[in-house]
Design a protein around this nucleic acid. Structure first.
Lengths: 143, 143
DNA sequence: AGAAATCCGAGTAAATTAGTAGGAGTTGAA
DNA sequence: TTCAACTCCTACTAATTTACTCGGATTTCT
């Protein structure tokens, strides 16, 4: 079980965006260069982040992206949910309701996934982008 | 982010094994039938569980598997770690140490994965197989 | 002897992930 | 007013991982 590059790259990119945001928007290519991520792949991620309302875009030359909210109002969970989909599916069998436990909404392993889900959510929803940005500023960028 | 069939099937199988353990060993084929999982796939999973010391095997006719420890001494985390590998890799870049953060053992996103990891571990290590077995007995098997 | 089981490793099909490519539309500035 | 720097969008492909299957060897009870 691990987080995909979407989540990893996206989170780094959002931190980068926070760190390098002045008054002007930040371009994807500058983030990509600093973070050593492919331009076109990052584009895709920002498409999702924009659609989810976490960033704003300014088109055209000298355009780029900005955080849509203050970084203390964006949690790591917000970001990861957009990029990773559900952080932990809670269904028992697979993605959909299974024949073997259709009637009862109870099921042993579902209980387990529920607990794991709660653990993850508690962690990521209490971590704010602002914290990461501050830390990152102190520590000279990096991965 | 989700748990693969290895983890899901394996957990169900371990609960099943606990529920149906009397004095005799329980065969893979019987578990597979009750849980609607392919025999040969389950075999693989039990291979891992055995190697990890969570189950014992008895070979030959009328052979099968038994829990290696009392179910209250086996946590869900024990099982999932065996079947899923690390529950959450904590490295920042990918699987290995990356050039971009080799020197400092600090890195912003690594901090995030660490927190997520702690959340997951806290959840699964406090859930005991015995609890699931008891619940499952009450609720007529199922997924 | 023979059936019922574990054991073991190789092979494969399907799904997902990761990343590319190409081009259309937008805008600021020379 | 043209050009370059951007976002935006969608389709495609390569690589990796997952989810199995298959065949056979070995062990052991009856």
């Amino acid at each position: 079980m691990k987080i995909s590059t979407k989540g990893r790259y996206g989170l780094r990119a959002m931190v980068d965006l926070g760190v390098y945001s002045k008054n002007e928007p930040v371009s994807i290519s500058s983030i990509a260069e600093r973070q050593q991520i492919s331009d076109s792949y990052l584009e895709q991620l920002f498409g999702k982040l924009k659609k989810a309302g976490l960033v704003l875009s300014i088109r055209g030359a000298q355009g780029g992206y900005q955080l849509a909210r203050k970084p203390e109002e964006i949690s790591v969970g917000d970001i990861l949910r957009v990029l990773e989909g559900d952080l932990m599916s809670v269904t028992c069998g697979g993605d959909e309701e299974e024949h073997s436990c259709q009637a009862s909404d109870y099921c042993v392993t579902k209980y387990v996934w529920q607990k794991v889900h709660e653990g993850i959510i508690a962690a990521v929803d209490h971590l704010l982008l602002s914290e990461l940005i501050e830390q990152s500023k102190g520590f000279h960028g990096g991965c």
